[in-house]
Design a protein around this nucleic acid. Structure first.
Lengths: 220, 220
DNA sequence: AATAGAAGCGGACCATGGTCCGTTTAACCG
DNA sequence: CGGTTAAACGGACCATGGTCCGCTTCTATT
């Protein structure tokens, strides 16, 4: 599976890669994590994931995570900087998995379908993912809501698909504009506050896509 | 100035209105705030606004606001429920003012311009407002980012303008979709992280609007 | 004006995110 | 293997959001 970004945990995962960096200082990276640090990171992530599953996101306090992982509280902060960082790391797992599906999974989300089909599948899938992880995304705050890496991957893929469809215009903005209504806060508003069924939201998005992609503006 | 919504402070602002409620129990509302409570509310809002102006949003702690207003901390929480609530109340002032400009201010934002001109002005103005209050919006969290009242006013006005332009389709969703890229988080990403100049973002939005409004889908 | 009762008040108290620093330990080197 | 060093560790400590409850003040009523 291709990885487009990684958190600190995943930088330089093997010794051999580090050797490469020794030889190619232009790719200098922070040296690999010490083994105890890596072990603690895994233990903390596992403990946090379990706490989320068993008692919900709100039950994930830094103290409880530390206790569950059998380490001190300071260690949690050293590894993840903040509670938001911990949540973002948790999110990152499924985000990476989803990126893999987009890049090399089965169509229509993955390659093999037409660009327009992929575009629709992309939007629907993103909505589902964002709603599914709503609590976590919220708890991740700035780090999760629009973590640069995640937004940047989605925007890149969106630009790619729009390019395939020969859409003319400021693809940078159009990608952002099509992505914006897929954000968790917007979806929660629509599906929970306004009580609009998800499939109607999806149909609305499909229509928006059609308007953007089939606009006369695209024809010279 | 027309007010489309109000926080608790502004419900039943006069005695005479309360008498009306005595006669029309169908419009029952919580009774007017006690005079000391109202005084404290104003003092707290003023103190908070001043703290924001002088030392930034981060300096606004509940203790400091309480101290600056000369009341106990419990009072701050009774009036505004939470820090986010206090921030939302602060935001609400300028939001109300902005709503007034949209409804009865000078064109092209207010009435008097064509619907399409008003739509563009609306988007540009919203972007500016959202960027200007970015810190406050963030500090208001759920209460400010998409406070139902604010979103609902903007969406309503957007639907109205789209209706004037004889746009066909799910106006409910289209309004949301055009509003979504105006959200603070999206704008901050574009203008600060991606370093895109605001006028390019505005131009992109104008293009998006054109695609939506001028889509062939609208012609039967 | 007296009174009753609801509403408001204040600040002690609690929970939790986040920092700091003296101690421990893994990793590398001679 | 022993020494050196930078990194990691742990938990005491701090700041701040949020709760609670006994006391005070306002307002409506008589």
């Amino acid at each position: 599976m291709v990885r487009f970004y990684s958190d600190r945990a995943e930088t330089c995962p093997t010794t051999s890669l580090c050797r490469v960096h020794d030889l190619l200082p232009m790719f200098d990276q922070p040296p690999r994590e010490r083994s105890d640090a890596a072990r603690n990171r895994e233990a903390l992530l596992a403990a946090a994931a379990r706490l989320v599953e068993d008692h919900g996101v709100d039950a994930v306090t830094m103290d409880s995570v530390a206790a569950a992982a059998g380490v001190g509280k300071g260690t949690v902060f050293r590894r993840f900087d903040s509670r938001e960082g911990l949540m973002a790391a948790l999110l990152n797992r499924s985000e990476t998995e989803w990126q893999g599906l987009v890049i090399s999974g089965p169509p229509p989300l993955g390659p093999g379908a037409s660009a327009i089909e992929r575009l629709h599948a992309f939007g629907h899938s993103r909505m589902e993912v964002n709603l599914q992880h709503a609590e976590l995304i919220r708890a991740a705050g700035r780090a999760g809501e629009r973590s640069y890496a995640a937004v940047s991957f989605a925007a890149m893929h969106m630009r790619y698909l729009l390019g395939q469809l020969e859409v003319r215009g400021d693809l940078f903005f159009l990608a952002t504009a099509l992505l914006a209504p897929l954000e968790m806060v917007v979806l929660v508003q629509q599906t929970q506050v306004d009580a609009i069924p998800l499939d109607r939201v999806q149909a609305g998005w499909d229509d928006l896509v059609r308007r953007v992609v089939c606009s006369e503006v695209n024809r010279p």
